[in-house]
Computed example of a mutant assay.
Amino acid sequence: MRLAFMGTPDFAVPALYALHDAGHKIVAVYTQPPRPAGRGQALRPSPVQHAAETLGIPVRCPVRVKKNQEELEAFAALELDAAVVAAYGLILPAEMLDAPKLGCLNIHASLLPRWRGASPIQSAILAGDTESGVTIMQMDVGLDTGAILASVPVPVTAETTASSLHDELAALGAKMIVEVLAARPPAVPQPESGVTYAVRLTKEDGRIDWRQPAAAIDRQVRALTPWPGAFTTLGDVVLKIGAVLPVGAVDSGLPGEVVDEALTVVCGGGTGLRIARLQRPGRGMVEAAAYLRGQQVAIGTVLGGD
């Protein structure tokens, strides 16, 4: 098929390669413009742009596509069979959705209609869902409201992290979009019940509230690492928390209080957890034992006390 591919982050890259390897003619890749990154704030192209350039596919990086007549005309002139969209980051107007013969197909990292919106992977872990998955959707003008072409679940366990689930769903989505384009299954409207929305995350979502039960904090850490990152404070120092281990009930102590030399911390409801990995500003993420060799944390210290 004659395709355009529209995506920006790492999640979209396996699908681009899978479509290319399947023999589809990808005539254009749309992605977000390069952004400042790193200490020098040099402009860095998106992972999808880097992949497209490696494959020799022309890349377009419009700042916006809505009410952008030049882009709308350029897109229509591609004479596409379909456009494949995966975490592109821009809302497509009706003119673009309707331009390809088969419309625009979206690779979405949830089992729609659960977790429509910006952060489906993190939201599934935060909520304690026991499964996630990928939906291939026929796009319409709504927010992830289009009809479903295919949907495949994957389990979410107590060890699942945002990183591991991201990689699993990215690989699954790449496989599914190739299959959908080959089989062209009928589109089934989404159920009207069970709709939930995944909000756009901010850094503040990573702040740990030690009054929450250990299980909820464990989900927060697993869901928000590496971004926006779970964190707490030790005095005036911000500590990123990379991994924790719930330890069950603790006898006593205030929420956030360190109760032993292994960095076991009191949580809400009489529960506790042990900090397994953490990071000081300007340093790398390390195991708790390595951190404690250079920075003692006294028993009785209360984290997040600011």
Rank of each mutant, 00 (worst) to 15 (best):
S132Q: 06
A37M: 14
L234E: 10
G248A: 02
Q296M: 05
M96W: 12
M285V: 09
I177E: 07
V250Y: 06
P47W: 11
A147D: 15
G269S: 09
P155H: 01
P62Y: 05
M6D: 00
A86D: 09
P185L: 07
S193Q: 14
A28H: 03
P62E: 03
R64G: 06
T54G: 02
Q41T: 01
L3Q: 09
V27C: 15
G282R: 07
T202S: 13
E95V: 14
G117P: 04
A290K: 13
L72E: 14
V178L: 09
Q32K: 11
V63T: 13
T202W: 12
V27I: 11
V302Y: 01
V48G: 13
I125P: 02
F5L: 09
V29K: 11
F5I: 13
A216P: 04
I208F: 02
A289Y: 01
L112S: 03
R207L: 11
E204H: 00
A15V: 00
P281A: 11
Q49M: 15
V188R: 14
A249Y: 07
A288W: 06
I275G: 03
P226K: 02
A12H: 09
R280S: 10
G117M: 10
R60V: 09
P120A: 00
R60H: 15
V286C: 10
L181H: 05
V178D: 03
P58E: 11
H20N: 07
V266L: 10
G242I: 02
G269C: 14
V180K: 09
V244H: 01
G282C: 05
L181M: 10
A298N: 04
P14Q: 11
V59G: 06
S252A: 15
S193G: 07
R219S: 10
G248D: 03
D21N: 14
D306C: 11
Y30E: 08
V302H: 04
G142N: 11
V154C: 00
I121G: 03
P246G: 02
S164Y: 04
P100A: 03
G117V: 08
P153H: 08
I208N: 04
I91D: 13
A276W: 01
R64I: 07
A158P: 03
Q279I: 12
R222K: 03
V286D: 11
L97V: 05
D218R: 08
P45G: 08
Q138F: 02
V258S: 07
G103Y: 02
V152K: 14
E159Q: 13
L143V: 15
P213F: 05
V178E: 02
R116M: 04
A51V: 08
